[in-house]
Nucleic acid binder design. Structure first.
Length: 611
RNA sequence: GGGGACGUAGUUCAGUUGGUUAGAAUGCUGCCCUGUCACGGCAGAGGUCGCGGGUUCGAGCCCCGUCGUCCCCGCCA
């Protein structure tokens, strides 16, 4: 039998009562976390978002409440009315914040019962993520998940407060908008009123925020949902939340200072002080030193070691002399057995084949003819990594191009990228040994980095054309425009585009935009896009550009990813209340689903395939 | 689109070379217990081994297919 709530009100949460509250009469409400039945004495651990408090049902104190407690089960919702009581010295529970007291109930109301849950919110996360997602409401009862959502809330709030104080307005942009089919696939929404036409859910509010700058709103931000119909990853959900901002008359550094400001504020409220400004690195340097455009600075960089090889050494090791040779150090790694080394060598060679090979410096050093070379490589790598020396048992790998290898057309950084992949593979494999990815709590856990000067164009092997590396409204460096490189040397044109990177994770991406119609037309021409095509796709925006567009720029950062890092999680699902699976299914609601024929008819849609 | 890992009780897992009735812990149900806090004690229930097909005298185990979850590559202006 369930009890009615009546006019009862909660007086305290389950996390706040302390020894100083002893003697107070309180009403607590919450979920039964655990029940311990000692016959005439029953303990209930009552849980809510704030914590857990022990309720005692003593047959002598509460002859009516006690029999009710006998039938209470985990996840029942109850109200306990009684007196806060100090626990005896021998029964204080030092593991609980409320462990010095308990509530001696005089009355117990069973407000609701519960089916036996498939897993207990009182325990740590179960392995079976399918079950967690299907019963997400139970999973979210776990303190860990509640804490993660708290982090997310705090970050969003800190960002809002900071940006508002800096003069930014939060302005909403439409979710039902126009499809601009470039880049990611759009989620489409059919129009009922206009048969055969579709809205698209925004991949980002890009054009709207630029138009807000044209409108003179000066500083805009929005914590906004974005949608991309692409395959998922641990750090990619089909709908995700961005901290999106745009400002008028900025230099790159102006944007950097704003972002550094709100990140400092957000990390601060989560108890993780960080140091600003963050280091800057050009794209070119990032690739040469880390082989990737989102370097993880928690591990040492790679070293270009071609200079330490003599011509004879290159020849006898069958290394192509005209190309870079890259050394990778993984510190604090223990030695491997010969069998492990052999298997490892095969694996690595498969990873870098066919144009590249790798040299194990440890092995190189044991051959008399190359021991001096090995020492020179060690020394060069140690110097570059800021180490006193490279320990011999640390895996030091040199990726080298085989004789006859040639760089692919228009990608002279290819060897660095390949080596960079290998560096990350190694880092992941020896994670347990180098421990560089573990939180140390010494204020050194968060390695932020600005990556700047991305190439403006990217060669598309499929279509054999230059395509934009970002979006087509990103401004090139003015000096590259003035020098005429747009026509003479597209590969050398740099974009005023920048990424903010944290521990090897891309947190966000932005740019200074094009504000001049003539430059915009030049870009479209360089991309081989006709005037008509540009008009058809972005006409409304190109029109707006002609009415006094000020120089402007901005950035967007993934709120989910920031929360993920702060929560120490390795998947966005841990910081998203209702996430989707790798196949973009919501296991709780079963979305997406088929819809009725009547609905389809109204939308003028006939599916070609039914599942 | 491609590669990899996994799928056995509600949950976490074990299951030998293919061999009798598929086990443990926990959870669940009932009874007992006045100081537990992962309470304890006794008893009990709980399985289409993801699904379909094949090989075999015999399949949780081997083979093929399929579905699902996770990770990675492609993709993500």
């Amino acid at each position: 039998m369930l009890d009615f709530l009546g006019t009862r009100q909660r007086t305290n949460t389950c996390g706040e009562l302390r020894a100083a509250d002893a003697g107070k009469t309180v009403t607590l409400m919450g979920w039964v976390n655990r029940r311990r039945d000692h016959g005439n004495l029953i303990f209930l651990d009552l849980r809510d978002r704030y914590g857990i408090t022990q309720i005692v049902l003593d047959k002598e104190i509460s002859p009516e409440g006690h029999p009710k407690a006998e039938h209470v089960r985990p996840e029942y919702v109850v109200a306990a009315i009684g007196k806060v009581r100090l626990r005896g010295a021998d029964v204080i529970n030092p593991k609980m914040p409320t462990g010095e007291i308990e509530v001696a109930a005089t009355e117990l109301l069973v407000l609701n019962d519960s089916k036996v849950p498939p897993f207990s919110p009182a325990e740590d996360a179960i392995q079976n993520e399918e079950v967690r997602l299907k019963y997400r409401y139970l999973d979210l009862r776990r303190p860990e998940m509640q804490h993660n959502l708290e982090i997310r809330h705090k970050v969003a709030l800190a960002v809002r407060e900071y940006l508002s104080a800096q003069g930014f307005y939060e302005i909403e942009t439409p979710y039902l908008t126009r499809s601009t089919p470039e880049g990611a696939r759009d989620y489409l929404v059919p129009s009922r009123v206009h048969p055969g036409t579709f809205y698209a859910l925004p991949q980002s509010p890009q054009l709207f925020k630029q138009i807000l700058m044209i409108s003179g709103l000066d500083k805009y931000f929005q914590i906004v949902r974005c949608f991309r119909d692409e395959d998922l990853r641990a750090d990619r959900q089909p709908e995700f939340t961005q901290i999106d901002l745009e400002m008028t008359f900025p230099q790159q550094e102006t944007v950097f200072r704003v972002v550094e400001g709100f990140l400092k504020a957000a990390f601060e409220v989560c108890g993780e002080p960080i140091v600003t400004p963050f280091p800057r690195m050009t794209y070119d340097e990032a690739i040469r030193r880390y082989g990737i455009d989102k370097p993880d600075l928690r591990l040492p960089p790679m070293t270009e070691v071609r200079d330490v090889f003599s011509a004879e050494e290159l020849a006898s090791l069958k290394i192509e002399p005209g190309l870079p040779i890259v050394a990778i150090v993984i510190p604090n790694k223990t030695a491997m057995s010969n069998t492990q080394k052999k298997a490892f060598a095969q694996e690595i060679n498969a990873a870098v084949a066919p144009d590249l090979a790798y040299l194990d410096v440890e092995r190189l050093g044991s051959a008399a003819q190359f021991s001096a070379l090995a020492q020179r490589i060690d020394a060069a790598a140690a110097k570059n990594c800021g180490l006193a020396r490279v320990e011999p048992e640390n895996r030091l790998i040199v990726v080298s191009p085989r004789i006859g290898a040639t760089a692919p057309a228009r990608d002279h950084l290819w060897i660095y990228k390949k080596a960079g992949q290998l560096r990350l593979d190694l880092a992941r494999r020896f994670e347990g040994e180098h421990k560089a990815f573990e939180k140390k709590g010494a204020g050194d856990d968060y390695k932020f980095l600005w990556v700047t000067d991305f190439p403006f164009f990217e060669w598309d092997e499929e279509t054999k054309t230059w395509t934009f590396a970002h979006h087509p409204f990103t401004s090139p460096h003015e000096s590259d425009l003035i020098a005429g490189r747009m026509e003479s040397d597209p590969e050398a044109v740099r974009a005023l585009a920048y990424d903010i990177v944290l521990n090897g994770l891309e947190l966000g991406s932005g740019s200074i935009r094009i504000h001049r119609q003539d430059v915009q037309q030049q870009i479209f021409r360089a991309l081989g896009m006709s005037e008509e095509e540009a008009q058809a796709r972005f006409g409304f925006f190109l029109e707006a550009l002609q009415y006094g567009t000020p120089p402007h720029g901005g950035i967007a950062l993934g709120l989910d990813r920031i929360a993920m890092v702060l929560a120490g999680a390795s998947s966005l699902r841990e910081v998203t209340a209702f996430p989707k699976t790798a196949k973009a299914i919501d296991l709780m609601t079963d979305a997406p689903t088929e819809v009725s024929d009547a609905q389809l008819k109204e939308l003028h849609i006939r599916p070609a395939v039914r599942s």
